[in-house]
């Protein structure tokens, strides 16, 4: 339990938000991808956050024994959207089915952009927390000058 642990907690927030931003950017980039390795159009992905203890294995085991300790965050899973893709009538398209419809990913770029802004703001908040704690640490080192 020290100020350095706070930095680990905020750093876990940075990692999680960055991964979230990566997934969102992937969604935006693939908003019109009709062909993937697994077949069919690209499917939208989303991250699920879960709070998780940070730090050394020993201290995290100890922390799990004690309730209500401060926790960091991690991505527990990345879920893929399983809903039906959007169909657009494009008979000339190479990926069109026999009726001339092409399956497009169900990605709403506006929704992903808003989420991306949220991820970016949350990243900033974690950076502010790190610099506040860093300032506190350097203040306590200045005590002996």
């Amino acid at each position: 339990m020290s100020l350095f642990d706070s930095i680990s907690v905020s750093a876990s927030g940075l990692t999680a938000q960055r991964q979230r931003a990566e997934v969102l950017v992937e969604n935006i980039a693939n908003a019109d991808t009709t062909r993937t390795a697994g077949g069919g159009p690209y499917r939208r992905k989303d991250v699920v956050f879960e709070s998780q203890s940070t730090g050394e294995p020993f201290s995290s085991v100890l922390q799990n024994q004690m309730d209500d300790q401060p926790k960091g965050v991690a991505i527990s899973q990345i879920v893929t959207d399983q809903s039906e893709p959007d169909k657009r009538y494009m008979p000339g398209h190479p990926d069109a089915d026999k009726d001339g419809y092409v399956a497009f990913p169900k990605v709403n770029p506006a929704e992903d952009m808003v989420d991306l802004m949220g991820a970016s703001r949350a990243y900033q908040a974690n950076v502010s927390a790190i610099s506040a704690v860093k300032d506190m640490i350097s203040r306590s080192m200045d005590l002996f000058h």
Partner: peptide
């Protein structure tokens, strides 16, 4: 006092890190 403030700061950092975690409650 310093110990308590730094403990509180750790909880604040934890709350910010979990600002988007479903079901997380502010501590």
């Amino acid at each position: 006092y310093l110990t308590l403030v730094s403990q509180r700061q750790k909880l604040v950092a934890s709350n910010i890190a979990n600002a988007d975690t479903p079901g997380y409650k502010t501590k």
